[in-house]
Design a protein around this nucleic acid. Structure first.
Lengths: 340, 340
DNA sequence: AGATTTTTTGCTCCCGCGTGCAATTTATCT
DNA sequence: AGATAAATTGCACGCGGGAGCAAAAAATCT
């Protein structure tokens, strides 16, 4: 057998090494690894075998540097307390990877950290930044698009008023009107809305939509409470403070929650600390349809977003070269369970 | 005011642009951005101001290419159904980022996909690959270390027998002995062990440790059941099949679960489908101490791993240059709640 | 077969920054 | 002040590969 000692060249096997081994030029080597490059089947085969022998893998850093396309996106996330994030992460990374995109996961540590997180992404020259968190105020977003080292700024599962920003989300207005209609249709008349944190730009219109609907329909403004983060534990505190000590008659008949993270926190205290029954004493409805919503502890009625479909669309946005506004709103559906 | 039109040079602002603007050489510019570079305060200031004016951000791709250090790690994950993953993701990305490391999140789609996921990481020339999933058999691991384009292969929260591999995890043997001691001490005598999938290399020794302990102490081998993934829904199925139809006397008195994902799935069906009480009819104990374990629905006794501490150690491993074996086992603690 | 068209291959010139060393400037010492 | 040491700054070369065109080879046509 031929002993190929160069089979382990110092540190890196480069395209040049493979070229020498295969008896072609370096460029043919790189062509062999490109999807629809102009190369004969014969030389591609030769190259691939040589590459296999040497253990060559193309260097995407260099490719990205030379071509100015990294096929990398940054995913900025900040509310890890929300179980729905795990679903989104799974779906996004799966769809992105299957279509040739890599994902940089950036944990946006706090409100003041948003700028630094964006900087982080910039330095890697990602092709797009995807926001699936909440703590981005207008100022940061503006700065971001200004010093845009990334071509696209996408807000996922949330809509933004900020210019130069692409929103991919469900239509909150339609969705919440559907929910409100459902609530009214089931005969609930004294709803309370449990809202999340108010961020300026990337915003959920759920609360205002619900209030507007209710006022138009019944002429009354439902009670509201607001939680500082999409965290079940925080929601539990707020609900305890709001509903604790209330008598049966003073209780809202349904709690409409901005999302499931709040809803399950609320249900936990309603049942186990305040000792009321769901849905008999007070019903609960959420948003997102997280896995736990389907479990026997909650049986939470919720609104399911087409996350996978949204992710597929996201890839299309990434891959298109033109510069129009890609914002698009999707339609989800109510999932009815026993909680409301 | 001076109108600086070059403030928006075509596409990329490079160090050369900043150099011209600041009246220094390109190398001084880059030194200004390096932590402990030899540069005078005065020129650093000049450079930084010029950079600010032009909106310059160093390009980490180029830096990585030239220096052969990317300060990037790949996180390979495959079991997103386990809520504990969200905790691990949050902790790891937070700690890594605070210490200057970026994270590539790779969703390992299936068992056959592991190799491709590794390849993916290779192409980005990450400094280390971190496995926090399960579906890596010996063959893949061996291939991985063979064609190592990354310097380190780290198994996080799990131990591996594979050579050239670094494990950072709790000491499963100690932990499970502690749990077994607790179970025995509380008077349980007919435990059943609920195990997860059996992977070859990256392995949890929890089951065998528990069985060995029990046999040594009581001379009997506890019953076992095995779930194909750390997914509450799957655990629910298995437990239903195993315990369904059993009479009160035939029931195990405690279910010892390999982790909380299995435990909560089990509790759900025990209470709501099989209609037994926890802990009166059957107790449950888990592992990982996920957030839901502390909620009122479960009140699950569990074992808490020092994830943050492990993450800090991980960074130290990443930063050290030498080549010794960094495997290290940590100690956690039992968290006692009402479920057992 | 000779001329033309089409496919394949090679090549020059970057992409943006790090390394290591030499040149230059500044600080310190007697 | 003059000499010597220390801190700063500048520079040639390399990291691994992409774009686009020119040269070479293969295929097609009359």
């Amino acid at each position: 057998m031929e002993e190929i000692d160069k089979a382990a060249p110092a540190g890196n096997v480069t395209a040049d090494d493979v070229a020498a081994e295969a008896g072609v030029s370096r460029w043919t080597v790189n062509r062999a690894f490109k999807k629809d490059a102009s190369i004969s089947a014969r030389s591609r085969e030769k190259v691939m075998q040589a590459a296999e022998r040497l253990g060559y893998v193309p260097d995407l850093r260099a490719a990205s540097l030379a071509s100015d396309r990294s096929h990398l996106v940054a995913l900025l996330v900040d509310d890890f307390a929300n179980p729905h994030k795990l679903v989104m992460l799974e779906t996004l990374t799966r769809v992105l990877r299957r279509r040739g995109w890599d994902t940089l996961l950036v944990n946006t540590l706090g409100k003041e950290d948003a700028g630094s997180a964006l900087l982080n992404a910039s330095q890697r020259r990602v092709d797009a930044v995807i926001l699936i968190g909440i703590q981005f105020d207008d100022e940061v977003l503006k700065t971001a698009s200004h010093a845009r080292r990334f071509k696209k700024l996408i807000i996922f599962a949330r809509t933004s008023q900020s210019p130069d920003t692409i929103s991919i989300a469900v239509d909150d207005v339609k969705a919440m009107e559907e929910i409100a209609g459902y609530v009214a249709g089931r005969g609930y008349r004294r709803p309370m809305f449990l809202a999340g944190p108010r961020t300026s730009s990337a915003h959920l219109k759920r609360k205002e939509t619900f209030l507007a609907f209710w006022q138009a329909r019944f002429g009354t403004v439902p009670a509201c409470a607001s939680v500082a983060a999409y965290d079940p534990a925080l929601a539990a505190e707020v609900v305890t403070a709001k509903l604790g000590g209330l008598g049966r008659g003073e209780l809202p008949d349904i709690l409409v929650c901005e999302n499931d993270a709040l809803a399950i926190g609320a249900m936990d205290v309603i049942r186990h600390r305040l000792d009321w029954r769901v849905p008999e004493d007070i019903a609960v409805i959420g948003f997102d349809d997280i896995p736990a919503a389907d479990g026997p502890n909650y049986r939470l009625s919720s609104y399911r977003q087409p996350v996978a479909e949204m992710a597929e669309y996201l890839v299309e946005v990434l891959e298109s070269r033109d510069d129009r506004d890609f914002t698009r709103l999707f339609q989800g559906e109510i999932v009815t369970r026993e909680s409301a």
